[in-house]
Design a protein around this nucleic acid. Structure first.
Lengths: 158, 158
DNA sequence: TGGATAATATTGCATATACAAATAGATCTT
DNA sequence: AAGATCTATTTGTATATGCAATATTATCCA
């Protein structure tokens, strides 16, 4: 056992397939995303609100009248994604465009009364989803995720 | 300051909007997903391979001939998602369906020679993306994510 | 002031994702 | 063996997401 096969020994003895399967950080984040999205979506379904729309609505509520470009920078979302996602929310009457008279390149959006009402309604259900998530992750897991987020993913940073 | 407004004091003095903005675990995971997906996609773009396809291809490579239902259980993916995602990979010749003669409800898939070659080719680029991700998260962040994943998100578990 | 450049938003195209309903094959039950 | 039930897959529909290209408005500068 003193000899190794060179073509298989370039990375600690693991081929690229095993290496990706065992180490890929993205794979894990995406799976986590799918599971958690399922939890929140299920709780919010009665309101016709998707989890990702909730995030957007909350951001718009906090950021006041805000342009798509700024939303995109804060949430790491492509402008084209925002055009389409916000369109649905405009149609649903949760947000509205307002005139600002300063920059003719599109209009800022703000939350409507209905949008705010909806957020207040979903409160308990969002909390239920959050609790289910914490239970799923375990106390340690939830703490880890919070630390990870606080570190590099502060959503509310502007 | 002995009195509080009841309608605003149900959750440590925060309205639901602030509460979601500051605490929502899903919001953070989704943003993290978008950022990391961008990193891996950028590195793999020259190969015409999306990050999520890489995950699928690696799983199929390791699981040998495998049915959609089992892939779905392991990766927490809806069967209907798999039908469509695998179709693209079949078209590209990275995987193939094989006859198994036991169960007529659809055919298991396995990786092709081209698929395996592709995985070997992307090795260095996947590693570059992984390194960029670790740099982005910081050593602490990467460690946290690994622990989180090891805890509840073991992808290779069958 | 007029043309070049930059910034914002949208559109076309492609993939990722899930739920609900439909389809088709397997299994069980009597 | 026929019908009921369960399992695996696909299809229809809708949202989420990003890149490339386009359109429109702002800004800069010579």
């Amino acid at each position: 056992m003193t000899k190794t096969e060179p073509h298989k020994r370039l990375n600690h003895g693991k081929g690229i397939i095993d290496q990706i399967a065992h180490e890929c950080l993205l794979m894990r984040v995406r799976k986590l995303d799918r599971v958690l999205t399922g939890i929140y979506d299920a709780e919010l379904r009665p309101f016709g609100l998707k989890a990702s729309q909730t995030t957007l609505l909350v951001f718009v509520a906090k950021a006041g009248p805000v342009r798509r470009i700024e939303i995109g920078k804060c949430l790491c979302l492509d402008p084209s994604t925002l055009t389409r996602n916000l369109k649905i929310m405009l149609t649903n009457g949760w947000i509205q465009e307002i005139a600002d008279g300063e920059d003719g390149r599109g209009l800022p959006v703000q939350i409507t009364v209905q949008g705010r009402d909806l957020l207040n309604q979903i409160g308990p259900f969002w909390r239920k989803a959050q609790t289910r998530t914490e239970k799923f992750l375990g106390n340690d897991g939830a703490t880890l995720l919070r630390k990870l987020a606080a570190n590099k993913m502060e959503v509310s940073s502007r």
